[in-house]
Every structure is written in C-alpha cells, then in structure tokens.
Design a protein around this nucleic acid. Structure first.
Length: 493
RNA sequence: GGCGUCGUGGCCGAGUGGCUUAGGCACAGGUCUGCAAAACCUGCUACAGCGGUUCGAUUCCGCUCGACGCCUCCA
C-alpha cells in the first residue's frame, strides 16, 4: 500500500487551464521533465524559484511513494542571441567576452548552479543531461521531422515549417495563440531571409566561420536550434509521451509550444500529459532585469551583500518564503516580506524542536488524525504549500499549548504528529532545522547550558544585573534564551 | 496592438456562491516573568470600481481602471 493510492492529487494543467486528477501513464511511476538553466552566467534567482517549486513537486511525489524519474537538463549549447537566428549563441558570446573556451564557461557556471542548489537543499534530479551530449539525438529528430514533411533545408540550415504543421495540427494550443494572430503580430527582423515565414523556427543552424561550438550534420557544420534539445532529451529518457513537463511561465511560448510541435511532427504524438508552469519572481514589485539593475543573485541574497535587503538570510528562510505562496502566483521578493517569513520560519522550527520534549497524556485535545489528512489534502490540491503551512502552524500552536498545559496529546497521537511534521517540513518542503542542527553541536550546547546554569544561580541570588548581562550578550551573538516554568531553553536565529 | 494571468484587511499571502475562522508578520490589551523575550488568550482593520445573474457574490458573467507575463535577449 502506497500513500499515492489514498492520495489522488490534482494538478493545474496549463494545457487545459484546469485542475485535473493526476494519473500517471504507468501506475506508481512518474516521468517529469523540467527545462534547466542555460549555463552562461550565475543562476538567476527567478530560475531558482522555478526549480524550487519543482523540487517540492518531486519531493512530494516521492513522499507519496511514486517512483519518479526527474530529468532536468543543462543547456550548454547556448540559445541563439535573438530570433533572427543569425547571432552568436549566449555561451559563445560569453566565452568571447571572457576570453575563454566555451566549455570553460559551461563548466564554471554548471558548478556554480549546483553549488547554489545545494545550499538551498535541493534534491538532485534523477538525470541531468546536457544539450551538447545529445547532438546525435537532435540530428535524428530533425531528420524525422524533415521526413514527415514539416521542416525544410535552406543553405545548410533547417527550419520547422510552422504553417505547414498548422494545416494538419494545431500550433499554439498550449499558449492559446492562433497562428493568424502571430502572423499579424510578428515583427519582421533582419537576417531571417532564409525562413519561408517569420513564425518558422530553426532546428539546425549552419555555423558561421567564427562560431566555435559546431558539430557535423547532414546539412552543414553547425549547431542545433534552441527548442530541440528538450524534445530530444525528454524523449530519450522519458519516452515519446510522459507525465509532467515543467518550467517557468516565460517558457510557455515559444519554447514549450515548439516542443509540442516538434514532438508531434516527429513522432505524431503530443508528448506531455500535464504541463506545469511556475510563475515569475519579482523584486520590489518589478520584474528582475539585469539591464535596469533590479536584480539580486542568490549568493547576494544569502550574504546580505546587496542594496535591496537589510540583512543576510538563511537558505531555509528563502525556501520557506517561497513555499508560503503558490507556485502559480507571482511572488514579490521584498525586504519586509522575507523578514516576516523569517520570523515565521523560526517559529515553525522552534515548534519542530518541541516534538522531542512534549509530554504525553491520556487524551488528545486535537484530532490529530484529521489534522494529518488536512495536510495531505492541501498538498493534493495542486501542491498548495501555503495551506499546508497554515496547518503546520496549527500544529505548532498545539504543541505550545501543550507546553502551557492548556492542551494535551496521547503518545500515539504525538508519534503521528511527529512523523507527519517531519515528513512535510523536512522531506516535502525541504526545510532544514538550523536550530536542531546547531543544538546537535555538543560543544556549543554544552557552553550555552553552562551559561544558562550560571544565570539561574545569579537569578536565585537576585543578581539580576549579571543574569541580564548573560541573556543580553548571548542575544547579541544570536542565541536567544527562553524562560519557562520548566526551565530555560535556547534557540539560534 | 494580440494572447494570457491577476487585483483580498497595515504588509505578505490562501480560499470560498450563504455556514465558525485561512495562515504568517505587524499592531493593541491581558496572562506568565524579578524585568524582558518566548509562549498562551483576546481584539483589529478585506475581498479594485461599476453593472448583471441569483433569495443571496469577495467567489459566476460583462465592462472600466490598474498590475504583471509572453508576443523581441532576460527564468
């Protein structure tokens, strides 16, 4: 018996615009693909939010007992600089600016990407394939599309024939666009004279002499178009049809639309059953943009070394802040917002600490079994983490009430409460209890316990000057003492 | 201009055709405390505007205003 059998989940499917009951193609197994980063610069904080959302989805599916194959690619071939398809790709450009090899850029920022995700306690995906490692698969895909009559070659480059495709298929079904609208609204750019129509997109580009990243193909020495890699890699590792495809909202068009078209053109099948899109992250109500300076890197956010935030934040605080809003909502990153989340986060973590010291009774004043079901119900409803968190706070309040002798819990219920909270806080939300980790540090705990003991003696002697000095100076280094009837505990913030 | 998402109380953010409330932060009063902090109890401001459907709408529909995303590099 797996948890997923008693927990049918509903997923908002961008393709249909509705919440649908999730049914995997193979019972008990989930195939999930998420478009990964282009590794030409430090990972964008908004990108981190997107991946954090899907990390949570991955974690919950695993928690329910699904065997999940989670594929998240590394784009190391570089997207073209603009839709004219004539420019350099981003990685080549960066390499030229930094005067290093393109693969050196790729290596540097791939390492940076992994470092950042590790700091934020991400689970590694099952497979993390690279675009450059799948050139052969991409060439095969192009050949199939040409064979089926949906692509044409011009001067060594191959383009997807959107108009021809749309005669027998529907181009724009995901983004709800109509080809005729696109025709009226597509700006004519320079350098796309090879295309039959402006809406066509490149599957293969012949490399200009100065283009460093290039591979041989039946059409020319060149490089693959920027929508192709995800189709090639998702097909290779998840099959021609799979369960979930995720990515940032901004990728819906054209990237994901083109993925659908490529798959249908090559394999005759729509590749994905559930399309999920994570919404955008804003900074102080504005979109993050490198050009306007309204941007902050993940490491700058964590170090406090930035002009937007009043202090440094622990990675768990940022994860908690993210989980307090729905993955489908625009999230506004502000100093006030993160500060508020920080307090809530530590309140939750203090509650987690109580799980080990709570006294049990003969009766429970809370229906713990019903509470547990509410937690699952929240997550089953399109991964509603804000509602889950509200239930977690209900449990924290309950634990505090027990401590105040205003509520009680049985040993059996406490075990359920503990197991459930651990599952959701640590396993599903991916939060780490810095307080618990630190109190596991025996040397620190021993030193603080000694100071607590000395302070107790001072208080017993009514030497309040000394006792307050101990309390205040510990507070200055981030150790907060908490007095209660049962003695004094401490927490780190 | 086209397509899409959205507009909730001091702030952040869920949710719903009427039922008793999201939750966090902030604020006020109280309990506890040597004093604080923490915790607990109580209170406090809501559903952009205008119409429509309905016995009844914050929730459904239409319009207006506004925000954001995509349509062009940015996740």
């Amino acid at each position: 018996m797996h948890l997923y059998e008693s927990n049918p989940i509903k997923i908002y499917n961008s393709l249909t615009g509705e919440k649908e009951v999730f049914k995997p193609i193979n019972a008990g197994h989930v195939g999930m693909y998420v478009c990964g980063p282009t590794v030409y610069s430090k990972v964008h904080l908004g990108n981190v939010r997107t991946f954090m959302s899907f990390d949570m989805v991955f974690r919950y599916l695993k928690h329910l007992g699904y065997k999940v194959r989670y594929v998240r690619n590394i784009t190391d071939a570089g997207h073209l600089e603009n839709d004219a398809d004539a420019g350099e790709d981003k990685i080549t450009k960066k390499a030229r600016l930094e005067q290093i090899e393109p693969m050196e850029v790729v290596q540097r920022y791939t390492v940076d990407f992994h470092n950042i995700l590790n700091i934020f306690n991400f689970l590694p995906p099952s497979i993390e394939p690279t675009a450059t490692g799948h050139i052969i698969e991409q060439i095969e895909l192009i050949s199939a599309i040409i064979e089926n009559g949906f692509a044409y070659e011009v001067n060594g480059s191959v383009y997807f024939d959107v108009h021809k495709f749309n005669d027998t298929h529907t181009y724009g079904k995901l983004s709800k666009r109509k080809l005729e609208d696109l025709i009226h609204n597509t700006r004519v750019l320079d350098g796309q004279s090879d295309k039959r129509n402006p809406q066509d997109f490149a599957l293969w580009k012949k490399a200009e002499p100065q283009h460093i990243m290039r591979w041989p193909s039946p059409w020319s020495d060149g490089f693959p178009g920027w929508h192709l890699e995800c189709t090639a890699m998702s097909t290779k590792y998840l099959g021609e049809q799979f369960d979930i495809h995720g990515g940032g909202m901004d990728l819906k068009f054209p990237h994901h639309e083109c993925e659908i078209a490529q798959n249908e053109a090559a394999k005759g099948k729509s590749p994905v059953n559930y399309w999920m899109h994570a919404n955008m992250l804003e900074l102080n109500g504005q979109r993050m943009s490198k050009s306007t300076g309204n941007t902050v890197n993940p490491d700058e956010l964590l170090s406090g070394n930035n002009p937007f935030f009043s202090k440094a934040f622990a990675p768990g605080v940022i994860r908690f802040f993210t989980a307090q809003s729905s993955y489908r909502s625009v999230l506004d990153l502000t100093d006030d917002g993160v500060l508020a989340s920080e307090k809530g986060f530590y309140r939750l973590m203090d509650g987690m600490g109580l799980l080990n010291s709570t006294k049990v009774s003969r009766t429970s004043t809370l229906d713990v079994a019903a509470w547990r079901l509410k937690c699952y119900a929240a997550m089953n409803d399109d991964f509603n983490t804000p509602i889950l968190i509200s239930h977690l706070f209900e449990a924290v309040k309950y634990l505090n009430q027990i401590k105040e002798n205003k509520a009680s819990i049985t040993a059996k219920d406490l075990e359920v409460l503990k197991t459930t909270m651990h599952a959701f806080v640590y396993d599903v939300l991916g939060l780490e209890n810095s307080a618990e980790t630190n109190s596991g540090n025996d040397k620190l705990a021993g030193a603080v316990e000694l100071l607590i003991k000395l302070r107790q003696e001072a208080r017993a002697n009514k030497d309040f000057a000394l006792s307050d000095q101990i309390r205040d100076e510990l507070a200055e280094v981030g150790i907060q003492l908490k007095d209660s009837k049962d003695g004094t505990t401490f927490s780190l913030s």
